[in-house]
Amino acid sequence: MLTIKNLKANIENKEILKGINLQVNAGETYAIMGPNGSGKSTLASVLAGKEGYEVTSGEVIYEGENLLDLSPEDRARKGIFLAFQYPVEIPGVSITNFMKTSINEIRKYNGQEPMNAVDFLKLLKDKAALVELDTKMTKRFVNVGFSGGEKKRNEIFQLAMLDPKLSILDETDSGLDIDALKIVADGVNKLRNKSNAFIVITHYQRLLNYIVPDFVHVLHDGKIVRSGGKDLALHLEEYGYDWVKEENKKAVTS
């Protein structure tokens, strides 16, 4: 589905990603772990198309197309979804209207008619139930006055509404208490299927108890330095990131 080859990216002339290689296949879930400042969120931003990042080399092929040539909206329309670490507040725009616009823009792009009101409301209700979001919340302005947990739940709700092929969850666990974490993880697990893929970016192993990954990659200093199965996450939980950093240092100096 997605192939990242030797991806390097700068912010304001500072190199953050220093050659990332990653293969993502349908039906699988990938955890990307790493200490603060390792480039996890930068990777998510570059994949979603945020401005201000300069890709200096490498390529990202998504379903046979060069992803980096596409605008953020076209990436979304082709099935890429980013759940934000810090969801943005949009005063004046209700969640319902936001999702209606979003779904119909995606449908328009794919040559489909706008969704009729009855179908839309049914979808809204079903997906709200999936992430245990009170439908009254959908009448409120996007993320305005939401708690941290509500914001993250709203991200997963949007994910459920748009049914993307590739979802990137950027530190969705940060700021969540254990109950909220379970609800969010539960929602994600229900959405996992053979034809979609998830990249779960996290600092902590905790989330991975609930969203069990097929692969774990450890990002350090802009590179993937270790890859393994779900056991790698447990190892990191126990021993922290220092041994990864040490090993990486040795590798660089030798």
Partner: peptide, 13 residues
Amino acid sequence: DELFYLRTRGIDK
């Protein structure tokens, strides 16, 4: 940031 957020949901610029 608001603009980018909307665009990541398939809404054009």
